[in-house]
Amino acid sequence: MNAVAKKASWDEAYNFAYLDEQTKRMIRRALLKAVAIPGYQVPFGGREMPLAYGWGTGGMQVTASVIGPSDTLKVIDQGADDTTNAVSIRRFFKRVAGVATTEATEEASVIQTRHRIPEKPLKEGQVLVYQVPQPEPLRKLEPRETETRKMHGYAEYGLMHVRLYEDISRFGHIATTYSYPVMVNGRYVMSPSPIPKFDNPKMENNKAIQLFGAGREKRIYAIPPYTRVKSLDFDDHPFEVQRWPQACALCGARNSYLDEVVLDDKGGRMFVCSDTHFCADRQEKGHRGPMAADPAARAFARSSETSEQKEDDGR
């Protein structure tokens, strides 16, 4: 890989990757500290981006500080490459950084995500950038930053355990299904961002570098590869992930996170992989789900297959 030799081509009305170099340096320094203190939220001088706060500005700033001309970028939202915001962010980086893009998880060197971790295990050297709306896992328990910072500083996490235990006494189990808090490297309680708890186990000992950017709240945090990441639980109520009685209607997968797709207003529905690339890849390899031949289901599948082509039309 020689990024300098490969000539970058982008919309030169803007700096490469939009941010000026001073801002990139500031973010890069924050990223290095974040990696050195896994799970700790590093404050950073977040900038206004040409995308609304809450729509991925933190992830975009991290991606912009990391990415180079030789990178290949994948952007997903809800696990899908073709959701509008994923398309919009991918277009942004095509324009301001001229990077190659892909939908294939294994081909991407940088993956920006909102709400999911790809099903396919990541490799060493890949960077997974999470968009984070609320980086503070304790915020719902304590609205004040001055207080939550103290709680992290002294590792006072009793309140969080009490909250989870209240669920157990009320419902018989912990009623948190996404943004399920994790303990990183035995020290910091961290928000995994609003991924479903189904994805939590993938964070532990991942081979890739996991970076988290919260633009509005101006925080960056990280999980280096091969790091302990435990979902909070109790001995008598161990952490569990979601399971579905159904297999994916299109590719038949039984081990992926499924979205419920409403097919009509008479209760018709199907369950399909939220990770669109994972699902398409399986179908290409000949895997078939129970509704793979159904016209309505096939219409649904097509909308994701053609997204790359549509994007090229728009350039």
């Binding site: 609304a52 809450g54 729509w55 500005t57 709400h115 709306p133 609003p194 939220s274």
Partner: peptide, 22 residues
């Protein structure tokens, strides 16, 4: 700018989390 962004982000798809809640 922060407030409008965060309120409006609720327009983004949240169906993965909604599925978890379902």
């Amino acid at each position: 700018v922060e407030a409008a962004g965060f309120v409006s982000h609720l327009k983004l798809p949240h169906y993965v989390d909604f599925q978890a809640e379902l």
